[in-house]
């Protein structure tokens, strides 16, 4: 049995994880266009949609555009799934972790279908979302996501999506 590896200093671990998340999400122009950013606590990520008047769909209410809400949920679900794959590889050590360190990420999972449940209208302020991977097999994954604004217990939209898992030999 090999000796247990030395415990890394916390700032090294944090810096590596933050760099991986930034690399995963920083390369999505559409996330920047919408004003979506991602925050991390351990392996849990929370997406934030920063309000901007260009996101309005109904100026009379006013309310967020349904397409914006759907896109925000889809981005969150896709990033959560991609992050879960990156996290597993990063934490496994060995060659998979070294590849992540070199910036060799698996391709983004491709959406097969996405069903959005509009629960109440999106208010003209910031929104947050968290996704949960219900099942990730070798080929397909099912992901659920919820978005809320002021009150975590009152989601304004939820969605379930199916994705094709990236083939890990396509990393690049």
């Amino acid at each position: 049995m090999s000796a247990r590896p030395p415990i890394e200093p916390v700032q090294v671990v944090k810096a590596r994880r933050d760099a991986a998340l930034a690399r995963l999400t920083g390369g999505i122009p559409y996330a920047r266009f919408l004003g979506v950013s991602f925050q991390r606590l351990g392996d849990e990520i929370t997406a934030q949609l920063s309000f901007d008047p260009k996101l309005i769909g109904n100026p009379m209410l006013p309310a967020l555009h349904g397409g914006v809400t759907g896109a925000f949920l889809e981005l969150t679900a896709q990033v959560e799934l991609a992050w879960s794959i990156v996290w597993r590889r990063m934490e496994s050590g060995g060659e998979a972790a070294a590849a992540i360190e070199r910036g060799e990420f698996p391709p983004m999972p491709k959406t097969v279908d996405f069903t959005v449940d509009y629960l109440r209208s999106g208010l003209p302020r910031d929104a947050y979302a968290r996704a949960r991977v219900n099942r990730a097999g070798r080929r397909y994954a099912s992901v659920h996501v919820e978005a809320w604004q002021d009150n975590r217990d009152k989601p304004f939209a939820a969605a379930t999506g199916h994705f094709v898992m990236p083939r890990l030999d396509e990393a690049g």
């Binding site: 390369g27 122009p29 559409y30 397409g67 759907g70 896109a71 889809e74 983004m108 996405f114 959005v116």
Partner: peptide
Amino acid sequence: DERFVGDPKTGVIHGGVLTALLDS
């Protein structure tokens, strides 16, 4: 529009743009 791209390696627009178009 390049601002709508979901994956810069391919230049394909993100599905969210289609969601907004189809919803509208």
